[in-house]
Design a protein around this nucleic acid. Sequence first.
RNA 1: GGCCCCGUAGCUCAGUUGGAUAGAGCAACGGAUUCCUAAUCCGUAGGUCGCAGGUUCGAAUCCUGCCGGGGUCGCCA
Length: 594
Amino acid sequence: MTAPATGDGPLPAVRRHIEEAVRRIVSTSAAPDGDWEQLLQRAVTLSPPRDPAHGDLATNASLVLAKRVGMDPRAFAGRLADALPGVAGIMSAEPAGPGFVNLRIAPSAWIPALREAVAAGADYGRSAMGGAIPVNVEFVSANPTGPLHVGHGRGAVLGDAMAALLAFAGFDVTREYYINDAGGQIDQLARSIHHRYRMAAGVEDSSPGEGLYPGEYLAPVAEGELAADGGEAVAAAEDAWLERFREAGIREMMKLIDRDLERLGIRFDVFVSERDLRDAGRVDKAVAVLKRRDLVYTGVPPRPKGAAEETWEPRPQLLFRASRFGDDADRPLRRANGEWTYFAGDLAYHFDKYRRGFRQQIDVWGADHGGYAKRVRAGLSALSEDAAGLDVKFCQLVRVTRAGQPVRMSKRDGNIVTLESVLREVGPDVFRFLMLMRRPDAPLDFDLLEAVRQSKDNPVYYVQYAHARICSVFRRVEEHGELQGLDVHAESDPTILADPREVALMREVALWPEQVEAAARAREPHRIAFQLSELAARYHALWTAGARGEPSLRTLLPGDRPRTAARLLLADAVRAVLRAGLSILGVTPAEEMR
RNA sequence: GGCCCCGUAGCUCAGUUGGAUAGAGCAACGGAUUCCUAAUCCGUAGGUCGCAGGUUCGAAUCCUGCCGGGGUCGCCA
């Protein structure tokens, strides 16, 4: 790909300058005690103030430090403000409020960022922040018992964008899928296929009964098996066909899932099979490690309040001391029938990720697994001796509606709203963007009609339109004789860009790398979606001003090559941010809207 | 009952890890056709940030307790 941005934008320069001034002021103070230098690094912020009237940037340095070194915050702010102007593009600095210092930055200070953005294109904002640290992002991991539903789709998009964001910020990211291909549900899958098999053979006409999967997507699998074996499993005992149907089921269901993921443009680097882990003895090994540390014992767990008293019978079980690692109770490792619990397998799996070098692990789960995170974190802490961390991101379920009415589910699809059916209607770009316009742990209503409406109500088209407009401007340059052969870089004089709306756009372009890093640190891809919306809004506003009341703000001014070149430079820089952001979200940057 | 998530404008949601007078979009109302794409823009109006305490220069944000909604609770995954 490309090298991470190494350019020294305006922000780092301003920050360095502030730090030097702060050190000078502190050195004159009567009581420079304490860990103020550490605070300077950690707690002092430099960010655009919420109210643009306060300037371009603001720092809270004196609020954080003044008291610590025995000074009055307002006095500290006053001295700091006096010391700043004149360097790094700082035009003026004023103390404000309880001790902020507001900075005005010369518009020309943003210009290097514009050139950097244009040069980097979709890679603008890529950073080395992550230091190539390996991060494992595990997501989807849906059971191979049927096609993906919309909720899986949300998790899929979140995980994929998370991975892209972290990769963009310089982490060494692996996208991983854990296949839950062991356990009772797979037996039920095999039995469901067998039922369909008997239907296909004409010896069964009732629909699948209790506990079996109703989806008709299993019929082709059954028919395939029937064609292959000529019906020998019709009346055979379960032992004779269970394993074969399990394998066929897993294989075919993973094909379905793969196809759904492909529609979303998602590729995984690694698939890990629960069965493989178990068969290779990895579960035994993980439990042995815990045993060696005296973290496993046989005991009777207390009856959970939710469990009905009639069905609960106290039974000694093999337990992991999860309560020593922040969990609320010790957790069972072995089922009554002697098999490992799902939890034991999950321990082995997260341990396996750790042993493959992932000290940072991110899991994307559905909200219905909410109570489960503590015990897995506890297990990973125990197994890695606190060397590995697990960050679980929860996705609330998605409610799909059409014009406000719940979408009815088809038996064909197994009574779920399939991801495929939604994608067929709205396309991957709309789906991905709308899924990322919301914080993942907030519930989401997805309306199929709203989603395809092409207007400003729909943030996908809104952002894509901004990108398309810029592309359109570039296509039109050559239509003007006076602009033939315009060299945007050589002929532009960006100091011409003086309108407040233009300067605001320049600033936003310059701040983009910082915003990417903030989103990556917070591990919140949805911030990117919101930032793109804001940038698009600013661009649309400027554009419409030029198109309506203020022709002098237009990009293409045939009589004024330097100004046109400068405007094109700005437009191109905005386009770079849009491309970079959309690439993180996995959304296509449309060249034109038709 | 325990644990997890949520509660911000009539509706849907942001809120830069504790900052200044809490912001967008939708809906409502009023505007922009000499235009590089009107899939756009400008303006008006809209708030006890669920409630009550606490922490400090400063709280929508952190801590405690309530209220309300959702999820979950051995031998499913």
